[in-house]
Amino acid sequence: MRMDRDTSQESTAGYVHYARIWAALVALLLMTIAVGRFSLLANYSVLGSLSIATVKAGLVLIYFMHLRHEGRVVKGMLLLAVAALFFIIALTFVDVWYR
């Protein structure tokens, strides 16, 4: 018997809901172009662009990849992977800046 249906939760989100997420992603794309290209945030454009990118990535993760329906195992593993990457980058920068 082949069964992939997850009985613990019903994550069959509606198509309209996905369309709304898509519209939000395109709106954020336009915002990131405004922030990055036209220097709307002056010296903070790098931080602004990367923050918007993180919001976009979050929307894709939570809604398109159904992270909100995943259990603690997947969420914990994701946190571990992102934290590992963060520490690798942070420690490298400590070396680069204070060498």
Partner: peptide
């Protein structure tokens, strides 16, 4: 027969692969 166990395993396997990809691009 329980379905869910098999399904969870398949999903976790894929997420694990994606984490290796994250560190690769990272």
């Amino acid at each position: 027969a329980q379905g869910g166990i098999d399904y969870t395993g398949k999903k976790i396997g894929m997420w694990l692969f994606l984490f290796t990809e994250l560190l690769f691009f990272g």
